[in-house]
Amino acid sequence: MTSLVPRQAGTPAGRTDAEQVTEAWLANRRLSPHTRDAYRRDVAAWLAWCADRRADPLRATFLDVNAYARALESVADPRSGRPLAATTVARKLSGLSSWYDFLVKLRAVDANPVAGADRPYVSRDHSATVGLTPAEVDALLAAAGAERGPAAVRHRAVLALLADLGLRVGEVVGLDVTDVGAERGHRSVRFVGKGGRPRRRALTPAASAALDAYLASGPPRTSGPLFVTGTGARIDRHAVFRLIRRLAEQAGIAGAERLSPHSLRHAFATAAREEGVPLEDVQDAMGHADPRTTRRYDRDRHNLDRDPAYTIAAARARRSSA
């Protein structure tokens, strides 16, 4: 691959031109560390695919991208053994498209080959995440509450933020001690949401108590990561995945091995809508730019008990009896 950007001072020796371009592209975008790593892997996989076929990524066409997409669809997910989901393939192509958009701006390529490619259809009304009922969330919290040992208070605090606030796992593990505070009579937590947007949420009494108990369980800390391991390192998302599945298994929740922290985020949205919280308030709480995304998280949205026809008929009955 020809050089697209000048080698920056301090660039590690041996870093390829493609890697330099990728790092420049990532630095130009507001992304979470997790998303940044995922995009980096996606571009590296595309470049490796091109290299295996002696294809020049700078001369790739939509036909090459189509062939790559079909190859991805035939790859087995190492976690499930099944072919990659359409959402996963679409996400990989989305990252690759953004990378090519950056190359277009650099005038390294004339056009984005992903733009004309045949991407998998992903319904905005569908999510592959396994959800949880309110009773199952209660059982999960009860399992965390029954734990004993030095890590138990940390587990309860992590679960409280996931269940009561519906935060993303990356938002939880990325919290620092200084992010917990108080605003206008509310205990609150500040964090960087998706897209690098600074956000804040109110802590429920249960979440506040769980955090206080966790912070009081160790030596006083005024800075650094909020949730740490026994060695003082920041906990990672994989540890939270394992925690959710272990507690779900202890609680006897069906399909525990398929649950994730995102299952609690879906449960938060569903419960909030079921309790009558307006869609726009749930959307704001979850940090969604598009209300259609919030609706997809609402697992009970197709419940016929919530059909607005009943509300209209009830209003008409009240008018006729007045």
Rank of each mutant, 00 (worst) to 15 (best):
A90T: 09
R190H: 15
P150R: 05
G193V: 02
R273C: 05
E274A: 15
V180M: 05
P113K: 02
H155D: 15
I253V: 09
D298S: 02
L167H: 01
L226I: 06
R299T: 08
K105Q: 15
V277P: 04
R316M: 15
D77T: 11
M1S: 12
E257Y: 05
L84C: 11
R124Y: 13
P57A: 07
A71I: 03
P33S: 07
V122S: 08
T270P: 04
V180K: 01
V169N: 01
D17F: 14
V177L: 06
A24R: 15
D212N: 07
D37E: 15
E183P: 00
L167V: 03
R221F: 00
A271S: 14
A60K: 03
G196C: 03
V240E: 00
R91Q: 14
V5Q: 00
S94E: 11
E275G: 13
D290N: 11
V172D: 00
R53I: 02
D164F: 09
L162A: 05
V282M: 00
L162I: 01
R168P: 02
L304N: 08
R237Q: 12
T61F: 05
D17M: 09
W99T: 11
S80I: 05
A44R: 14
A248E: 06
A313L: 15
L26H: 11
S123W: 00
Y310I: 12
P278V: 05
S80E: 11
T87L: 11
G224Q: 01
A139C: 00
R59C: 13
W99N: 10
L215E: 13
S263I: 02
R53S: 06
L141S: 04
S98Q: 14
T129K: 08
L63C: 07
L140E: 00
S260C: 08
H262I: 01
G181M: 08
R184S: 14
V43R: 07
L203W: 05
L226N: 06
R296K: 04
K105R: 15
Y68H: 13
V158A: 02
N112E: 10
R187K: 12
P225W: 00
S94L: 11
S223K: 09
A115H: 09
G193M: 03
V75C: 13
M1I: 12
E136M: 05
N112L: 08
L247W: 02
A142M: 06
G14C: 06
L72W: 09
G95S: 07
